[in-house]
């Protein structure tokens, strides 16, 4: 096997690196429009919306499904998971979020907390077509 076959193609590699980084950065800035204030937290589990929590009022919501629990705390306009009985505790470690578009994910419990703007134009999604 000849070395020439895969000897570094520096120019191409550097161009690839630059191109991917620029593309990703552009995407990043177009997705996160400079931290708009969120107004509610949408809690979704197993693909279905469980509850919508207004960020204006401090509350504690305990999500329960079979043996799975996550204690969701709304405090000072932000959300975090204080306690959970999931493996890894990744959702607890993700900490507090307070900007629209941010989310906390608990993979083992298939739970997502997503921050959204309260938007009246949101399409109705609870029409079930059978």
């Amino acid at each position: 096997m000849s070395d020439a076959k895969y000897y570094p193609r520096w120019r191409r590699d550097v161009i690839l690196l630059a191109a991917v980084v620029v593309l990703a950065a552009a995407l990043q800035f177009s997705v996160f429009k400079a931290g708009t204030q969120a107004s509610e937290a949408v809690v979704t589990a197993h693909g279905e919306t469980v509850v919508r929590l207004a960020l204006g009022t401090d509350t504690i919501y305990t999500y329960e499904f079979e043996e799975e629990t996550n204690e969701i705390v709304v405090e000072n306009g932000g959300v975090f998971i204080r306690r959970a009985n999931c493996k890894g505790q990744d959702c607890v470690r993700q900490g507090r979020i307070d900007r629209a578009g941010q989310s906390i994910v608990c993979l083992p419990h298939k739970l997502i907390i997503e921050l959204a703007m309260t938007d009246a134009n949101e399409p109705e999604i609870d029409i079930i077509v059978r």
Partner: peptide
């Protein structure tokens, strides 16, 4: 997870 929220992480993770 049956949710597209995670697509938001693509740019950051790609970098």
């Amino acid at each position: 997870l049956d949710s597209t929220v995670l697509f938001m992480y693509i740019p950051f993770l790609t970098i």
